[in-house]
Simulated scan of single mutants.
Amino acid sequence: MTMRVLVVDDQDLFRAGFRLILEAQPDITVVGEAVDGGQAVDLAIELEPDVVVMDVRMPRVDGVAATARICAETSAKVLVMTMFDLDDYVYAALRAGASGFLLKDLRRDELVDAVRVVAAGEALLAPTVTRRLISDLVQRGHARPELAGRLAELTERERDTLRHLARGLSNAELAAALVVSEHTVKTHVSSVLSKLRLRDRVQAVVFAYEAGLVVPGRPDR
């Protein structure tokens, strides 16, 4: 099945480069390009892409506002791209429903893999900045102690699953840490997302830090 991708960036060079890389893949089709968030929303509704590769810093309508509308009004997954690994826009974009965050200095194969991962319903953060991103979010005063009560809805095993998710572990690594099969891990992750009413693994990571389940600098608490 061919994945349909919409590329959004106010810089012609980035849009052209992303299109060239993605269209070289037999399972990916770039169905359109947008130069700002407003146009991105219109095209996402019209073209129904599977994934939107979204720049955050754009004139007129930025990527955060566009991400919120696209996630609310379409079934498209949003993959946020930025030049800055600790960008305030990124925090807002994740809360708005973005399924991933990567830096623009990534390799071409990383871009292709990211689009496939997000299209498959998974979520990801740039591995080199995951811990810094979330720790910085909390240290800037975004912690929300009132979320701690929602943790009571989880079983002890589900809390362990969420704690390990916050460390950025893959399903295989989670299975090894919890000493269960990958199938069981998927069941636990699905249950955590459902009980906490979260969209995907990225939001689960943010929730774990904001609720105080994981403390920056002490991820195994």
Rank of each mutant, 00 (worst) to 15 (best):
A76W: 00
M83S: 14
D109N: 13
L86T: 00
S135G: 15
A143H: 01
A126E: 14
A96I: 02
V78H: 01
V80T: 06
V61M: 14
A126P: 08
S75W: 05
A92N: 09
T74Y: 04
R107V: 08
S99H: 11
Y89R: 10
A123H: 01
V129F: 04
K104E: 09
S75A: 13
D62A: 07
L94K: 03
D87M: 09
E110C: 08
A65P: 00
G97F: 04
E73A: 10
A65F: 05
L103W: 00
T128M: 14
Y89I: 01
L94Y: 04
R140P: 07
D113R: 15
G100Q: 03
L133K: 05
L86N: 08
D136N: 12
L106G: 03
R108Y: 08
A98W: 01
D109W: 11
D88N: 11
V129Y: 04
F84N: 11
A92R: 12
M83Y: 08
V118I: 15
V78N: 03
G100N: 09
V138C: 07
R132P: 10
T67D: 06
T67P: 05
R116P: 09
D62I: 00
A96D: 05
Y91N: 13
G141R: 04
R131L: 14
D87C: 07
Y91T: 05
Y89E: 07
A92L: 10
L94S: 09
K104P: 11
G100H: 02
E122Y: 06
A98V: 02
V117A: 14
L106K: 06
S75N: 13
G141V: 04
K104N: 12
I70V: 05
A93G: 09
M83W: 07
L79E: 09
C71L: 10
E73M: 08
L102W: 01
L124G: 13
V115E: 10
C71E: 05
C71S: 12
A126D: 15
D62H: 10
A123R: 01
P127S: 14
V138L: 12
F84E: 11
A96W: 04
S75L: 09
A68M: 05
G63K: 01
E122D: 14
A119C: 08
D105P: 04
V78R: 01
T82W: 02
A98Y: 03
A65T: 03
H142Y: 10
A123T: 06
